[in-house]
């Protein structure tokens, strides 16, 4: 499926900012199930860009602004070919154990996914092969943590959302990661976009949001969207992967000046073919 994504975000500042240094993680990845055909980041004020791939394989757009400004806007427009979801692998626990050193960072709790006793108990209750455990645990989360937009913030952890019983896609992903890792399955956080129509119509633009889901290692990486309870497939566009949200904020930076407000995000997704 060929999808076009347009993602706009930014900040407004209370007083004039003379300089700011920023990193944007907005460019979709190219990998086995996804091909990024084009992607362009534009900023306002205009700035020279540098790009690099970070430790987690995400393409980072670096730019600094040196003209006085009270608002910073960043827009990324990309065209991506996606592939249908593959079937999950079915490895043995021995295979997982043998690769544990390689995946150690994705097996241990990260800052936002530290489990509490509740989550630990749930994880140890899951029985069967790694695949059974992954399917059981990740399918269960959306019933326990309700998707309620605005109920949490970027600083919310897995346990916060679990105790609250509600959250956004980011929180549901964090809870899922916490459970999978506790159960001994390497799992990573994925950020990107979802075309929200079940059957996307070519040429029709839908407004969406940044989305987040997880990937578990079952001999190979397998993506699952716990918010919607579906495997990550053609309608999912991958931008970044990491241990949790902290590894891949869409926009981060520092500036010298007074207070600021986040302008929020607008995302438009269009099926092109």
């Amino acid at each position: 499926m060929r999808l076009q994504v347009r993602h706009s975000t930014g900040y407004s500042y209370d007083t004039e900012v003379l300089s700011s240094y920023n990193e944007a993680r907005l460019v979709p990845q190219t990998g086995l199930t996804q091909l990024t055909l084009s992607s362009a980041v534009t900023t306002n004020p205009d700035a020279l860009q540098q790009r690099y791939w970070d430790y987690w394989g995400t393409q980072v757009t670096v730019f600094d602004v040196h003209v006085p400004h009270t608002e910073l806007q960043v827009t990324c427009t990309s065209v991506v070919d996606t592939a249908p979801a593959p079937a999950p692998g079915d490895p043995t626990w021995e295979l997982l154990a043998a690769s544990s050193d390689e995946h150690i960072e994705l097996l241990r709790p990260s800052a936002k996914t530290i489990p509490n006793d509740d989550l630990k108990a749930l994880a140890s209750d899951a029985q069967g092969s790694p695949r059974d455990v992954v399917l059981a645990l990740s399918g269960m989360v959306k019933d326990r943590v309700e998707y309620v937009p605005g109920s949490t913030g970027v600083q919310t952890s897995a346990v916060d959302a679990w105790q609250l019983g509600s959250g956004v896609c980011q929180d549901i992903a964090h809870v899922t990661l916490s459970l999978l890792r506790e159960a001994g399955v390497p799992a990573r956080y994925v950020s990107g976009y979802l075309h929200t129509a079940q059957e996307p119509v070519v040429g029709e633009t839908v407004s969406g949001e940044s989305h987040a889901w997880v990937e578990a290692w079952l001999g190979g990486w397998w993506g699952f969207d716990p918010t919607n309870g579906i495997p990550a497939g053609e309608r999912h566009v991958v931008v970044a992967r990491g241990r949790d949200y902290n590894d891949l904020p869409p926009l981060k930076g520092v500036y010298a000046g007074g207070g600021m407000q986040y302008l929020g995000v607008t995302v438009e997704v269009t099926r092109l073919a």
Partner: peptide, 8 residues
């Protein structure tokens, strides 16, 4: 010296 603030 400038004081820097993280964007959030």
């Amino acid at each position: 010296a400038l004081a820097w603030t993280a964007e959030r």
